[in-house]
Amino acid sequence: MSWRQDKTLWGLTLGLAALLLLNFVVPDWFRNILTLSLARGSVALGLLVLWRCGLISFGHALYFGFGAYTVGLMSRYLGITDAFLTIACGVVTAGLLAYGLGFLLRQYRGIFFALLNMAFSMILYGVLAKLEELGSTDGISLEATTYLWYAPLGAENKTALFVFAVILTWGVAVLVHLYLRSTLGNMTTAVRENEIRLGYLGYSGERAVHAKYVISGLLGGFGGAIAVLTIGHVDPDSMVYWPVSGDFVFIAILSGTGNVVAPFIGALMYELIRTYAFDQFPGIWQLIMGGTLLAIIMFLPNGLWSLVDRGRSRAGAGALPAEREEG
């Protein structure tokens, strides 16, 4: 398929333009939510990549937190606040961790895979909560972010971060989309369908899973780095504890696996529902969140994106075959 026909690429680019324009219109608090959605959406995108081979991780806060702490520690101990450098390091360290753990994890499937991830994230949580050098449960606060030679302050910094995050996330989403479209990307659907047959075809299921896992780790680190720059603070309870991993899976389910755009929309919906529930029902906001998730599972099992797919197929334009999900 040529570049020009790829609706997802067009959609992503339109989204990029729209977000950059929105920057001038939306109030600060909403822009903050948008940036956070990009961060969480990236992690959920990582889960989507894994899901292509039928795997899901209940511990991706491990990579989210790893990326976030890399950025935080660089600011605290090395005085490095440059966004390019810190994000790059956050992504790379998370990727390396995923690469290392991948050798072990690629042998597991199903619920074992999910839980083993959780075990590792809880070990990281324990280390972080224990060590005062790493900020203990109070966490680490960041110095103001800089961008190469550009060091904006206050509101200008928030604008810069937003533009920066939007462009980077766009790049990341495009890369992931192209990867999923490729043969290697498609092969993993076969891992989910029947791994042993895949082996007879001469492909290694384990290696395919490993590659996917590293990608999801990189995306987790990226999301964590963006999140910590947005929040300006990193602590184990809101970045590494197991319910954080639950939130990512929540977003992935909410979004559906249909398209790389979906996780970002899902993340935004998640943030908005949470904000609204928090405002209107301060004592029972968890009930609202849980209820929403249940409703999605029961009535929209393929996530919000299935609304778009449904709309499309009714309008006669078939969705891209590579991105169709089996129910």
Binding site: V249, F250, L287, M289, G290, L293, L294, I297
Partner: peptide, 20 residues
């Protein structure tokens, strides 16, 4: 459904029950 979906459904039910 997929086993993951079921885990997540129980997670959602857990959130609801906590507030109940």
């Amino acid at each position: 459904e997929d086993e993951h979906i079921i885990v997540l459904a129980t997670f959602a039910a857990f959130l609801v029950l906590e507030d109940v």
